[in-house]
Design a protein around this nucleic acid. Structure first.
Length: 289
DNA sequence: ACCCAGGGGCAAG
DNA sequence: CTTGCCCATGGG
């Protein structure tokens, strides 16, 4: 029996892809990562321009990590400014993962006002408490809406969700009872899809756009969080400090084209990983004792 | 259009 | 140890 499967992965960076804030349930495993693709346990490690993966998962891995996306063409479509160019260099090989619909929407619903470390903890707690165990694997499957719909708000709060417990419960119930059909959103145009997802409690434009981008393969979807908002204001509206949120949304939709979501992810990850400028206090210089 | 609650990990002091 | 930061959504 083979120890692992091998597949070619040119112009791909596994670490950047898994650590750019798209997905929160993969963990380092030696020099690779272990995680789940849906319900399927996978270990993956990058060796140069090849991936070594759990035998039999090659096709699933290639699809999940979107190895078919033409990054050359995608990057060539971006606006040609210095900020964008720096982000492209920094994020070379970063790909937008094709995530399961509910797992993606549920996870981003709980991400509001949270940093990556805590999103990971909440996601892990929900999986441990409500998810289907995977034999021989330390991470359970993300719990189905039907399972969460049967939980109480207090049980979800016990997973560290805080006020998000109410939103996740309401959304799980809406989906479980069929008043929103996540599969049906596939057939809608971008505007209708966004509106449909925003009917769910706790889902606004930011989270709906994350789901459209990371799960529905709408590569033009452009989630705007405060990091991206800062980048847009600084880069494209440096001389218009009063530009409104609505104007920013309109600008993003028009200026970034069919792969705007990729541009957004690169700008986001680049901005997030730059060292924050230290705040210098005037009192920092004190006379020696 | 503006304002603020909400919750807990985490970095800084 | 204590304080302040993080920063989406919904409801007033």
């Amino acid at each position: 029996m083979k120890k692992w499967g091998v597949l070619p992965a040119p112009n791909f960076n596994l670490r950047l892809t898994l650590e750019s804030g798209q997905v929160f349930h993969w963990s380092p495993d030696g020099t690779g990562y272990r995680g789940l693709i849906g319900a399927r346990p996978v270990r993956v490690e990058q060796i140069g321009e090849e991936l070594q993966v759990t035998p039999g998962t090659e096709a699933a891995v290639a699809r999940y990590f979107a190895l078919d996306h033409d990054l050359e063409a995608i990057c060539a479509s971006f606006p040609a400014d210095a900020t964008m160019a720096q982000a492209v260099v920094f994020c070379r090989g970063l790909r937008l993962i094709r995530q399961p619909l509910w797992e993606c929407l549920g996870t981003f619903l709980t991400s509001s006002m949270k940093q990556v470390a805590h999103i990971r903890q909440m996601s892990q707690a929900l999986r441990q408490r409500f998810g289907q165990p995977v034999p021989g694997w330390d991470i359970p499957v993300y719990p189905e809406p039907e399972r969460l719909a049967r939980a109480t708000e207090a049980e979800l709060r016990a997973c560290g969700l805080g006020y998000r417990a109410k939103h996740l419960l309401g959304t799980a119930r809406s989906i479980a009872e069929g008043s929103v059909d996540l599969e049906a959103v596939h057939a809608m145009d971008d505007e209708a899809a966004l509106a449909e997802l925003c009917r769910l409690p706790g889902v606004g434009p930011k989270i709906a756009n994350c789901a459209l981008l990371f799960a529905y393969e709408r590569l033009s979807a452009f989630p705007i969080d405060v990091w991206i908002e800062r980048v847009l204001r600084r880069t494209y509206f440096a001389r218009k400090p009063k530009v409104s949120a609505g104007q920013l949304r309109e600008f993003a939709a028009n200026a970034f084209g069919p792969y705007g979501g990729y541009a957004q992810q690169y700008l986001f990850h680049h901005a997030r990983t730059q060292p924050r400028p230290r705040r210098v206090k005037t009192a920092a210089i004190r006379p020696a004792p």
